[in-house]
Design a binder for these strands. Sequence first.
DNA 1: TGAAAATCTTGATGAAGGTCAATTATTTAA
DNA 2: TTAAATAATTGACCTTCATCAAGATTTTCA
Lengths: 241, 241
Amino acid sequence: MEKRKLSNCGHTHTCNHTVGSHKSCISLVPIFNHLEVEQMDEIMKTVQAASFKKGEIIYQAEDPSDSLYIVNQGKIRIYRLSDSGKEQLVRILNPGDFTGEHALFSESMHESYAEAMVDTSVCVIRRLDLQDFLLKYPSISLKILEEFASRLKQSEKQTAQFATEKVETRIALFLAECYDQEKSSTGTFILPMSKKDLASYLGTTPETISRKLADLEEQGYIKRKTNKRIEVLNLDGLLLI
Amino acid sequence: MEKRKLSNCGHTHTCNHTVGSHKSCISLVPIFNHLEVEQMDEIMKTVQAASFKKGEIIYQAEDPSDSLYIVNQGKIRIYRLSDSGKEQLVRILNPGDFTGEHALFSESMHESYAEAMVDTSVCVIRRLDLQDFLLKYPSISLKILEEFASRLKQSEKQTAQFATEKVETRIALFLAECYDQEKSSTGTFILPMSKKDLASYLGTTPETISRKLADLEEQGYIKRKTNKRIEVLNLDGLLLI
DNA sequence: TGAAAATCTTGATGAAGGTCAATTATTTAA
DNA sequence: TTAAATAATTGACCTTCATCAAGATTTTCA
């Protein structure tokens, strides 16, 4: 059987720096960092800094803020609400990632989202300012378009995975992806979120995650070193589960 | 309990006309129809017509075409391939919808897609032409961005549904959505695809679709009139399943 | 640090739905 | 229009995984 391609493990883009001042929001993130220095300066003037404590919620469906948020430090967890109100973790934003589709679109896009913070500092660009820039510098739109296309691809891939693979396979693919992204020399990687969150992300329960990891260990694919750190013993095997 | 909001039933946008000439591809579709007449004329010059017979495949992962396709007549079914190669129906394009992300982006977006035709005529804009227009007329990018944002929202919603709702609920929500979109005076609607396709779209099997429809009928929520036509007897009930 | 809270693990059980197989209905194309 | 192909239905069975519960471990923060 052919070796599988890997799916995404919840990282939206790799950006390991810890952003210093709120200005670096602009100069370091992909959607702006291709601009000329003067153009970035112009945008920086409109940027405001903000920070959130753990557990705070930036916005929810009923309470739409209309700004674009760029993560400076910390993480933002983005949940989507299903029709019956159950929530699924769809993405975790790391420094350099952005959110706030409300700022980008007019219509009825303002629903079914919730976002939770983990001691985060962000840069904020208000809707009106952003709209100006989009028209003035078309290349920003193209960058955002690229980002959206990438997210869309990722989301559809995940949907297809939900539709066609069983939980065990989804977990195995997730582990392989995480391992692939960390490329630690020790042959190990760290789970990027709690098993509770992971269960939400993969559409299963913490109990099942526990059990499947135990199974995978028993079958010799992985070895659990600590709670969060996992050693991969047989990557190819993982990808064929 | 609160009445649920509806999810999408596979239509990307409502566009009932049957497009006549290939020129109307430009003047009728949302991503172009806001332009000035001269601008549309300019784009029309670069448009080529093409048609496909049932079962043909426009492109696949390994064989990326690099054009933007706008559906003129017929339908295009878009499948996504999971990591293990199983495919899921993710979207059905109707006249006015477009596809061909390859034309829009540079990098490694060219994978895991397949598209199948049903006697379709399409308009084709080549990548290089399109790139010119995007830079020349920024508003096209904004329109495409809006379309992508909408698809992304839809896709994430569907992912959340897969992650949190059981098959029975997904089917019920799908029926309610279809009914909502058709608004037939008879209280009925027509399933927009075969049950085989529907099973693929909803991540289940044709057998389960059959059984669940029978259940829903027995419980008095719906009545199957013919193979494809379904009468809705209790919409609110459907939404609470 | 140490107590409280949160998370994780493991077991027992049951429900939901997938698979296989046989039959019936519908669609396609000659 | 009819034969062949495809799709849909129904039944029997069985796998997967969610749920509930109880205990162990890790994390938090006073």
